[in-house]
Amino acid sequence: MNSEANLTRPAKVLVTKIGLDGHDRGSRIVAAALRDAGLEVVYTAPWQEIPTVAKLAMEEDVDVIGVSSLATDHLLVPKLMKELHKAGLDYVKVIVGGIVPDNEEQDLLDAGVARVFHPGSDMADIVGTVQMLAGEAQNDTARQL
């Protein structure tokens, strides 16, 4: 476990793919790495609709959403961010992994994405980042009773 991550319970992460592409090798490898680091990973088939992702994040009460995009489906992520906001899920952290051109990475960060991981990213970096973000999400005041 990452010692910097301020987790109050096992981190829960949704690993998913939106849009049209179906290449899922990357998302499967990341999901397995997160599991092996002790995280609880909700895994979906590709082609999720954006409202469905928001509903799923709500039902599963996840801390982090990881969107894998190997074609151009990352272009939909700003719409996902709006949908999460609409559903009152602003505390959920979103990361994107896959092929994202440099000039479009900033658009994603501007839309509220916490971090974009590119091919060849260090798995330990991905896992550590997810744990850290999950800790932040768990401690968000909006989620306290």
Partner: peptide
Amino acid sequence: QIDPVLLGTC
């Protein structure tokens, strides 16, 4: 039938 932002990108 799909989000226009994805059309013709691949």
